[in-house]
Each structure stands twice: as C-alpha cells, then as structure tokens.
C-alpha cells in the first residue's frame, strides 16, 4: 500500500553486534538511522503561544512557544518531569479532567481557533485531535467494537459504513492482515504491540486531523516498537502527529521536527536533523549525546 524509503529495522541499532558507540565527543546520532526526508516548512496547524501551565500551585510549563506543522511528525523529548506529556495533553484538553490544573497565561490555537475559547467544545476538539496512550488501553470488547466505538458515539449505525471504517482503520494501522479473521474476538487477546496498533486504529477511525501519542512504545518490545514506528511514518501522509518519547533514537528515527524540553521550558525546537547534529543549545547537546547533567 505504501512504499517509502527503506527503513533500517529499529532492532538493528540495538543489535549488540552493531559498531560500538562513538566516543562522547563524537556525535552520537551518527549511528542512528535517520529519516532522510528533507524538511521543508509546512503550514502551522497548532500554534502554542506563551503557555504557562499549573498543577495546583506547581508550575509545570513556563512560557512555551511552539508552532507545530501540518503532516509532520513532531517529537517532544526531554527528561522525566520536563513537561512534555503535560503539553501534549494540553493539546486536546485532556488536562481539563485533572483536578487543579489551569492555564495561567498564553493560548493554544489549532487552525487559528483558540481551543480555550468559550464556544469550543472539548468533546468536539477531541474528535479532531485523537490520542494514543502510553499503556495500550483497548476496551474489553471485540476488535470490531473497539474501532467503531467513536463512531457509534456519534450515532453512526450504518453497518456497511462501520465495516468500511473498520477495514480502513485497521489497514491504516497495519493491523488488518493480522486480525481480519478474528474481528469479533476480544481486543484483549492481542499481543502488546497489536493492542497498541489497535488503539491507533481506534483513534484514526474517527478521522482526526492530529494524533497525539504519549510514549506509545514504552511498554513494547523492540520488534513491536519497530512496527509502530513504521506505522507512524506511514500515518504522516494523512495526519499531523505529535509524539512524546523517552528514547532519543526513536525521536531521531520517526520525527521530522524535535522539541527539547527541560524543567518545563522549551529549550530548543528545530528540524530533527539539526537538533541531533548541530544543537544550538548546550543543554540540548548534553541531552542528545547522553551526557546529561
């Protein structure tokens, strides 16, 4: 269905027989297979301006300014607790559901619409900005029912339409071939990687514009991770993707743009290649080269 530039399997980079890590002064990412796609500027889809975010009295984000581009994969990296997941959850207002969170200053605009405007319905927003979570969370229902869940909520009853969406979504999530004969079995019977792809299929079934992924591979083994990464690469054609990841290699492999966060501040945001090859900031360099301190 999709042919792309051949990607070196992710597992390869983890192969113990791979060349030893370069010395610290060398650029670590030379050994990482990076997407060769040249990054041409694209339209801004999400525009974050001067965002200050609080959990109760504790400030989690400080004056974040970020413009995310259409049909690109943007990776948020940074050490634990740096605010990258928080920012991600701001984008579809999932933070609204947590007690004591508030945006003190700044705005987030998606396609020119401030998502905190009074007439914006977070429910409608979330239909357009889907999300995949760290831990795969299929409902204890059949694969089929998992995927049509969102559509059924919107009141779609047409069987042929639902069937169509299931097939398209599963194909989109590269899961169709593996599950097409057991669509009506429980989603919980799938392997971890398959479950995560099922969640992705479920997210794309409602045809969002943006897909947010919160460390989607952190609970998966290398082979399943490789599959998801490949999938992300394919999804980029139709969707704007924002991915939070702990693995710098992963960021380097899948993303076009990378934003590095540290202590709630956006330190650097640029093309992935630039971030990894010629970071402008010393902290970024220290982090991406593994000399974090």
């Amino acid at each position: 269905m999709v042919t792309t530039t051949p990607v070196m399997p992710a597992s390869e980079s983890l192969d113990p027989s791979a060349p030893p890590r370069p010395a610290a002064n060398q650029r670590l990412f030379d050994s990482i297979p990076m997407r060769a796609t040249p990054v041409t500027p694209a339209r801004t889809v999400i525009d974050i301006q001067n965002l200050d975010f609080f959990y109760g009295a504790k400030q989690a984000l400080f004056d974040v300014n970020l413009a995310l581009e259409e049909k690109r994969v943007t990776a948020f990296i940074g050490p634990s607790g740096c605010g990258k997941s928080t920012l991600l959850r701001c984008l579809n207002r999932m933070n609204d559901l947590i007690d004591g969170t508030r945006i003190a200053r700044g705005s987030i605009e998606i396609r020119g619409i401030d998502i905190h405007r009074r007439d914006v319905d977070p429910i409608e927003l979330r239909k357009r900005v889907g999300m995949v979570f760290q831990k795969s969370n299929p409902f204890p229902k059949s694969i089929y029912e998992n995927i049509v869940y969102g559509l059924r909520l919107q009141g779609v009853r047409d069987k042929t339409r639902l069937d169509e969406v299931v097939e398209r979504s599963l194909k989109g999530a590269a899961l169709w071939d593996e599950v097409k004969d057991r669509l009506h079995e429980s989603g919980l019977g799938l392997s971890g990687g398959q479950q995560q792809r099922l969640c992705i299929a479920r997210a794309i079934a409602v045809e969002p514009e943006v897909i947010l992924m919160d460390e989607p591979c952190s609970a998966l083994d290398p082979i399943a991770t490789a599959k998801i990464e490949e999938l992300i690469h394919d999804l980029k054609r139709d969707y704007t993707i924002v991915i939070v990841t702990h693995s710098m290699q992963q960021a380097a492999r899948v993303s076009d743009k990378t934003a590095f966060f540290y202590m709630g501040k956006l330190v650097e945001y640029n093309d992935t290649r630039t971030i990894f090859m010629h970071p402008a900031n010393a902290q970024t360099e220290a982090y991406v080269s593994g000399r974090f301190g």
Partner: peptide, 16 residues
C-alpha cells in the same frame, strides 16, 4: 485569520 476551506472543515465548536 480568514477561514480557508481547510480551516472551515475544522469545526470544534458546537452549540449544544
């Protein structure tokens, strides 16, 4: 700020 066609399709407001 003028809504293009793409932006018009991005409807996240709704009168409930």
């Amino acid at each position: 700020t003028a809504p293009s066609t793409a932006e018009a399709s991005f409807v996240i407001t709704k009168a409930r």
